[in-house]
């Protein structure tokens, strides 16, 4: 479903991604671990079609992400690190608005179900987003992606700002989406959450994919040790 082959991306001569090769199939959750500036967001942005690789291939469903970005984006659900929404609209209105942008029209009850299944309490649905905490906004952002029923989900630090319970709910949701056949890429710093949710994990450093690990093969503590070793060396 997702294919990245020898992708290179530089900014002002500085390589942000260097010969990155990755393949993620349907129903798979792939975690991208790395420090700030490792290239996680650049990878996500290339998949979103906002950045074009200098060389190499970046494809989703056999379509070039930068050339066919419009077509590719139709099948992507995206959750940014900071979900900013229209503060004067309620959570349900924001979800409705963003769904309509994607050409989807849901009944109110369906919208409520999406929000509830993403962990937003019902009493908050009709409140203006300006009264929401960061975590609540994040939940609406997740609901927006979920409601899109996409083939691919790209998550850039999705759990940032979520409380442990909401974070756990997100994990369950992602697993559910994967079980329904979606391919998911999750960029994160959270080693434990990545270990828990993802099937495979890639460690990125200075734009290079240093290691790919099956999460079943390592415990959380081992993964942390491995990660820190890579970062130090």
């Amino acid at each position: 479903m997702i294919k990245i082959e020898n992708a290179v991306k530089s900014f002002k001569g500085q390589k942000a991604i260097e010969n990155l090769t990755l393949e993620i199939s349907q129903g798979e959750i792939f975690g991208l671990l790395g420090a700030n500036g490792a290239g996680k967001s650049t990878t996500i942005n290339m998949l979103l079609g906002f950045l074009s690789p200098d060389s190499g291939v970046v494809q989703i469903d056999h379509k070039n992400c930068s050339k066919d970005s419009k077509e590719v984006r139709k099948h992507i659900g995206y959750i940014p690190e900071n979900v900013n929404l229209y503060p004067y609209l309620s959570g349900i209105e924001n979800l409705d608005y963003f769904s309509r942008l994607a050409g989807l029209k849901y009944a109110k009850s369906e919208l409520k179900d999406f929000l509830s299944s993403c962990g937003l309490q019902e009493e908050a649905h009709k409140k203006k987003v300006s009264t929401y905490s960061k975590g609540m906004r994040q939940k609406v952002g997740i609901a927006i992606a979920y409601a899109k029923k996409a083939k691919v989900y790209l998550l850039d630090e999705p759990a940032s700002g979520l409380d442990p319970m909401a974070s756990n709910e997100l994990s369950q949701l992602l697993k559910k989406l994967a079980s329904e056949g979606a391919a998911i890429v999750m960029a994160s710093h959270d080693i434990f959450r990545v270990r828990e949710v993802c099937h495979r994990i890639g460690i990125l450093k200075q734009g290079k994919l240093l290691k790919e690990i099956n999460s079943e093969d390592v415990s959380a503590n081992e993964l942390e040790t491995l990660y820190l070793d890579f970062m130090k060396n």
Binding site: Y78, L101, I144
Partner: peptide
Amino acid sequence: QLILVQMP
């Protein structure tokens, strides 16, 4: 970006 993902 979120908007562009929803509506290309």
